[in-house]
Design a protein around this nucleic acid. Structure first.
Length: 156
DNA sequence: GCCAACGTTGGC
DNA sequence: GCCAACGTTGGC
């Protein structure tokens, strides 16, 4: 049974267009340094799908869909002291942080902005819309997933 | 650029 | 174990 997720990225750092332009349209999702988000990353399975969300963007929006093509494995950026994601407490023997690989599936014809999503009644309990929510990896309920896909279809 | 909300750190 | 201080996230 595949599950649904939402992944945040700042488009200035890495946008959905960057993903589409990546080799094999695939990238590793490195740099998650929050335990709750890490736990969700570790729960992801190959074949799960996720929304790609542009945070710190103008406007912030869900912009498309990606698929998990490799389940979680140690985030080796944490082992590299030259990386901005370095964490001396994480080692190859006992990794504290993990990442998955995701592949581009599609970009919506029209971005689904945060403010537009807030007006959809089916999404009122969505984690993304909770006040103060900062989770960069979060689960999406099936009915939320469907409602958002319907919005994307109707917006096109 | 501002600032509220949140998570982490570290003194006690 | 409490909590103040600090750093980060991310909408506005």
């Amino acid at each position: 049974m595949s599950q649904y997720w939402l992944l945040k990225s700042e488009p200035k750092t890495f946008s959905i267009d960057d993903l589409a332009a990546s080799p094999r349209q695939t990238t590793c999702w490195e740099g998650v340094r929050n335990y709750q988000a890490r736990n969700f990353l570790c729960a992801m399975k190959r074949g799960d799908q996720a929304f790609f969300y542009h945070s710190n963007a103008d406007p912030p929006a869900i912009v498309g869909v990606v698929e998990v093509v490799k389940a979680s494995y140690p985030d080796h950026y944490a082992f590299d002291s030259n990386s901005r994601y370095y964490d001396s407490k994480s080692t190859p023997e006992a990794s504290r942080w993990f990442m998955v690989d995701v592949k581009y599936v599609r970009k919506f014809t029209a971005d689904l902005t945060l403010s537009a999503l807030r007006s959809v009644s089916e999404l009122h309990e969505m984690e993304l819309l909770r006040k103060g929510s900062r989770l960069s990896v979060q689960p999406v309920r099936v009915h939320e997933w469907k409602a958002i896909l319907r919005l994307a279809r109707n917006a096109s």
